[in-house]
Each structure stands twice: as C-alpha cells, then as structure tokens.
Design a binder for these strands. Structure first.
Lengths: 361, 361
DNA sequence: CGGCGTTAGGTAAACGGTTAAACACGTGGC
DNA sequence: GCCACGTGTTTAACCGTTTACCTAACGCCG
C-alpha cells in the first residue's frame, strides 16, 4: 500500500532507506549497517546494496540520522562578519579542519551585536552542533559573560562544546575551550620596533575601552612605552573601531585639529592602517618618509601597502579550535583546554629611523 | 519509569519536549503547538508552558523538527574559498538574507575542485538544505555540466533548489535558478575606458580558457577592441588564475622576457591588479604615470590602491540568490528563473590618457 | 434541557533513520 | 547426535518532533 497512490511525477517523495532495502531485497537494518560501514557484511550483500543505492540515487537524510543517534554532526562558527578578513581567515581554518574531520560547517554572523551573538548560540544548540566556535573581539562585560557561561553549561549538557577563539576565558569553572593568540605580546613587540627606531610620539589608532582585542593590544603598547621609559600620553590614543574608514576618520580629525604631534602611527589593525594611510597621503604626508606606520593582523592588504605589522595565525586559530573541540569530546577532558598561539612581527617597509632629540634611553 | 535511573549529573540527557509537557502539566502536542505559535491557545496554558520552557532551558531539537516535517530549514552555499573577497562578499549577502528569512546558513568550500564541488552538493542534499547556492567561476566542461544537471534534478525532487550564482545556466530544462552579473558588459566598458584614453596596447592578465568568468571577461575585452577597430593581438593575453601572486608572476615574466610592449594593463580581477602593481613598481614603473591599469570586481583592495575597476554587486548577488530561491519554492515557478545584474565602472586614479601615435579611430 | 457549533487540549501515527537483541544457519568438538 | 558457537540478517524499539484526527467542556439557542 503506497503512501501516495497518485502518480504525479512532480512532487514524488525522495527515496528512503526502505526503498533501497526493497530494491536490494534485504532488510532496512542491513542497508543502514552497510552504509555506515561499521559492521561485518557478506560481500555479495554489500554489492547488492551498493548497486541499489546507485540506481536509486539514494542519500541518507541527515536529520533522521542525527535523530537516531549517529554522532557525526556539524561544527558551528559564529563571527562578526564574513567579509572582514580577520574573521574570514579564521573561518577558512575552521572550514578546512571540519572538512578534514568529515563534518560540515554552519556559520552565523552577529554584526558585533552581543544580543545577536547569544541568540545565534541558541540557534546552534538547536541545530545540535558538535561544537560552537565564537570568534574574536567582544565587549568585556560581566552580565554578558555570565550569560555566555550559562550557555556554555547548556551546550556541555547537550553534549556540545563551546570554544572561544581569539578572546579571553569566561571564568575558572566554565566548560569552554579557549584558543587565544598573543595580542599583548605582539603589540609590545611592534611598539618596541618603533621605539628602537627612535620614535617617541607614537599615535595609537583604535582604542575601544571594554573590548577585549583593542584592550589587550593597547596594553602591549603601553607596556612597551614603559619599558623604554617613554612617558605615556593618553592624548596619543584615539578611539575608534577596527574598520578602514575609522582609520581614515581618526587621522583626518587629528590633522584637522592642529599641527602633527606624532612621528609614527600604530594602527590597531591593518584595515585601520590602510584607511589611515590614505588620509595621511591626502594630507601630503608620505609613509615612511614623513611618518612611520605599523599595523596588526598581517592581512593581505598589509602586503599591498608594504606594511610592517604583526602576524596573527588566523587559519591555525580556526583549525586548532575545531581540532581541540573534537579531541576534547573524544577523550573526556584529557587535553589542555586553553592554548595561546604566538604572534611575530613582519618587517616590510613602513618604518624609518627617527633621530631622537632626547635619547633618554 | 525513567530511561536512566542513574543520577550522574555529567551525562544527563538534554531536556525534551516531553519534560516540558510534564513540567507544565499539559500534553506534548500542546507544547509543540504553542511553541510553533500556529494554533489558538488559552493564555493561561500558554504562560504555563512558556514558564516551563524557561525554567528547563529547553530548546527544540532541529533534527527532530526537520524530520517531522516542519519546513524551516537551512540555506547552503558552496564557494571556492571563504577568504577570497569575491566569495566572501557573496557569502555575506547570502548569510544576511538567510538570517532575514529566519534560516541559517551552511557553507562548503571546494578549493576550485569540481569533484569536491559535486561531493559537497551531495552533502547539502543529505542535510536537507532548502536551497543550494553555487558561487562563481567554474570549469566549462560538458561532462561536468551534465553531472551537475543531474544533481539539480535530484535536488528538485527532494524539494530543494539549485541556484547558480555568477555562472552561466546549465541548460534549457534543468531546474536551476541563475543569478548572473554582466562580466562581458563590464569588461567591455572598462576596456573602452582605456581605449578612449588613447591606449592601444592593453595587456590582459588572467586568461584561463574553459573557465566561465575569465572567458566572459576576455570576451568583453576583445569586443571592445573590435569596436574601436584595434587589431587583436593574442600575444597580449596572458594566462593565469585569479590570485594576487599570479598577477605578480605574469608581470614579472612579461618584463623579464623583453622590452615593455604595452601601455595599459587590464587585470582579470582586483587581486591580480594588486599583484601586478607590485611587480610593476619593482621594475620602477609608476601607475598611472608610466602604465595605466584597471581591474575588475571593486574589492576593498581596489580602494587601497586607487584602482579604476568594474563594480560587481557581490552582496546583492547573494541576497538575490536566497530571495529568489525561497520565492521560487513558495510560488511554484511563477517568477523569473534567470536574472542578470548590471555592473558599472568605478573611476579612480590608475588611468592616464596616452597620446596615440596612430589615431586610426 | 438536549443538540450543536466552537474551542482547547489529548492521542497516536508518522518522519527516516540506528542499533540492541533475537534469530537462522552452517560448523566443528565431544 | 547434540550442543555451543560464530556469522550475517531480520525484527522491533527507539530518537524528539509535528500534526491529523478525536474528544471533553462550554456556552447558546430553540
């Protein structure tokens, strides 16, 4: 008794495992076993089944499979935006490693809105994602952190795993993995690079109090100043977000406000650097002849403008996130749950020595 | 009769709709109906249920939901690579529109390998994606096309929908939507821009015979030459893929091979342009003073290097793909199934007039 | 006061797989 | 000749929802 006696060709029900079983003359269970591969089976049966699968062009229904308890699911990644190169490269790493492990990758974007981020995590929980990877910069707020910790616990309870990628840990007993990279160290190194070249008035572009990434970058900047015994002038730190046009705006405003009072620029990331560079050039200032400049991230754009910058292992960040999450789920919490990847500076051609009038070093 | 009498706190089964029903003192069906919202319900019952949901932190299992026939599923996008800006921007559009329609977005990458692309489509079919969006450049091969047509039919049969985004149609009776943009027109326009400025020897970078995107761009280039009665010199077309380092290589090889025999460069896309620009500068050639240059795509990098280029509506491409697919599924094939989005040139600062010695125009 | 439309909620059958347990069927040991 | 055994397959019980169908309760009117 066919479920549908009508013979309309259009809306025909897709082939199920039952159809395959019938076509091959075996039971449904046998087909399932042979397809999962995880069971002994007679070669003759096997080939019968495979032929049926091919002839009917059968593919298993992932929903049914997931429901029935077969584990292979998917990996979720949540980013601010797909077009931002920083996120894109991490996403690429996640995608690569996920494919390697035979899982697929569902992405959500938040546009930087913590509310949407929280909501998206819930969505991924619904979706039964094997792990949920949260990437990058976020507001550093207690209430937010507490909510996220709650979600981490909910995910763990559902057999999933929260991974924080490029952002600090939530707290000591929150079941989340953390993959960081050394923002402060990188910022310290590249600021030192400028200081060693003799620069003393270094403009920092992209401060944003209460946001994890700029906060730790500026911390490295300040520490380097202190190490070189250069007095810290808060007036040299400009507020702004990590976008190209913000870099443009900040330089613009600075130069419009009065005479130039800096010899070098530390852009919070390479995008800001690109925007800042354009504004500087529009003001007739050449890099590095008139002003030295460094950035952060080592995005492709840095190569275009020959920018000395800090290399961040974006793809490895993403790959490691997936690898660790899956590993952690296999061997229940045997491995480390917090790693810090290194950064290093990439010297190109945007820094010139500056003859220090005051060699207090 | 609890499924598990053991009281281990760790591996507790996640809460199901049954738990919610029990906790609220109603039946499972009622909970389901109230959560889907699509049913009358007494306010009292409603609030009881909502409270239970909140107290138990319940989220529905998407697999079960999908299995049981609730339609809201997900949108799949398949791209060459997430980090390539071209794909990233389309992906952003897809992601945006999907979120707007309340669906989430699963992505697959192919690395440009047709085999992997085919495999990924199968994966998405398993996953019950509402539509499968294939983005961008691909080999133009009959066998491949036939296989993809097969998959399009399989998807349609399973209630899904194949969408080709930025690539030509498969054939007249293949159930696939096509969202294209005007490669040939854009290439024609920007080549004309160079020709109008007096350039006659225009080097084309990034020919790749049998690939849809470069093929149609070079077609526009040739047509513009013909329209201006400029003899076509195949020696001015250089083979290469659409990557930055390829642009660098091509210029490098050209200039190493002999004296410069072109006054302008048409880079197959902006990435090639960026690479080519670097190679030209290393040879002491300035843009646009010594050599004019144009690109294609209008990626962010084009703004960095002030490149005159062709704007492609990447995000809109992605958004339209999702919108049309979903629309098409609602109103069975009422709407158009093939649209061509326009392109236009963006004039920046990489083209200078070239005093023509031969004004055959 | 009994019949009836309406409304809110319950019952149970799918959905398409997986998998533990039962089973059929030679095979070799005693 | 009987039994324990291993191999390959089937049977049937789930997995967590949705939803078609049914029922209880409640006015309302003749």
């Amino acid at each position: 008794m066919a479920r549908r006696a009508v013979s309309d060709d259009e809306g025909r029900r897709p082939t199920t495992i039952r159809d395959v079983a019938a076509h091959a003359g075996v039971s449904v269970a046998t087909v399932s076993r042979i397809l999962s591969g995880t069971y002994p089976s007679a070669p003759a049966t096997r080939s019968k089944v495979m032929r049926a699968v091919r002839e009917l062009d059968y593919v298993a229904n992932a929903n049914a499979r997931g429901l029935a308890g077969a584990s292979s699911r998917s990996v979720a990644i949540i980013v601010n935006s797909v077009v931002s190169p920083h996120y894109a490269h991490v996403a690429q790493g996640v995608q690569t490693q996920a494919a390697l492990e035979g899982k697929l990758c569902i992405v959500g974007t938040t546009g930087g809105d913590p509310e949407r981020e929280l909501a998206t995590v819930q969505l991924m929980r619904q979706e039964q994602a094997e792990c949920v990877i949260l990437v990058g910069n976020v507001v550093n707020d207690d209430a937010y952190r507490e909510r996220m910790a709650e979600y981490a616990r909910a995910l763990a309870l559902a057999g999933s795993q929260l991974v924080l990628c490029g952002r600090p840990a939530l707290g000591p007993d929150v079941p989340a993995l953390v993959i960081e990279y050394d923002n402060t160290g990188g910022a310290h190194a590249i600021t030192s690079h400028l200081l060693s070249a003799g620069h003393r008035r270094i403009l920092f572009l992209g401060r944003r109090e209460g946001y994890t990434t700029p906060d730790s970058r500026i911390a490295g900047y300040r520490k380097a100043l202190a190490d070189f015994h250069v007095p810290h002038d808060p007036g040299l730190e400009m507020d702004g977000t990590m976008e190209r046009h913000e870099g443009y705006r900040m330089i613009r405003e600075r130069l419009d406000a009065g005479p130039r009072d800096f010899t070098a620029v530390f852009a919070g990331n390479d995008l800001i650097a690109a925007g800042a560079r354009q504004a500087l050039r529009e003001h007739g200032l050449r890099i590095p002849d008139d002003v030295s400049m460094v950035g952060f991230d080592d995005l492709p754009t840095a190569a275009d403008i020959d920018l000395t910058t800090v290399h961040v292992p974006h793809e490895e960040l993403g790959r490691t996130a997936v690898r660790m999450a899956l590993e952690h789920k296999r061997t229940k919490s045997g491995v480390a749950d917090h790693v810090m990847l290194g950064t290093h500076i990439v010297v190109r051609d945007t820094v010139r020595p500056f003859p220090a009038e005051d060699t207090s070093l």
